[in-house]
């Protein structure tokens, strides 16, 4: 039987995904928490997180290991607050992380980001430019 990953303080996956939002946010703030615990917290916040989870998740968008997990949470949380932190991350990230943030804005169909996305179409990183084009295609109303 293979060994499962656990966090010394927060335990295994079943324990972490059973935590309430306040505890999940505590994990995101805890510098000693493992990547595993933070990843599971982000995924659970995708389902139960509200405005209180947005900034803690946004703080991970620039983390190479956890940026996708942060988007996992933010992409699902409805409302302008999550949209705003994703849009702000367009100017704080680069390379693959910027591609990911752009993709998430496209999935959310955040029309407030039309201007920044349009500017990214001429980004020197071709993958970013393609992601911006794809996101804009999602944002445009169907013909």
């Amino acid at each position: 039987m293979a060994t499962l990953t656990t966090d010394l303080k927060y335990g295994g996956a079943p324990e972490i995904v059973a935590l309430p939002q306040t505890k999940l946010i505590e994990i995101l703030h805890d510098r000693a928490a493992s990547m595993f615990a933070k990843a599971k917290a982000c995924q659970r916040l995708a389902v139960i997180g509200d405005g209180a989870a947005v900034e803690p998740l946004a703080s991970l968008l620039t983390d190479a290991q956890l940026s996708h997990y942060a988007r996992f949470g933010l992409e699902a949380i409805p409302g302008a607050q999550a949209a705003a932190v994703l849009e702000a991350a367009l100017s704080k990230t680069s390379g693959p992380l910027l591609v990911g943030v752009t993709n998430s804005i496209g999935v959310r169909k955040d029309r407030n980001a039309l201007g920044p996305l349009a500017r990214l179409r001429s980004h020197p990183d071709a993958e970013v430019a393609k992601a911006a084009e794809a996101a804009l295609a999602r944002l445009r109303p169907p013909l």
């Binding site: 389902v47 996992f72 699902a76 409805p78 591609v99 990911g100 993709n103």
Partner: peptide, 17 residues
Amino acid sequence: DEEANRMRSRAMREPWR
């Protein structure tokens, strides 16, 4: 049911979409 609606999709790891 907002929780159920949130579970209709999952963010993909970059660069995939």
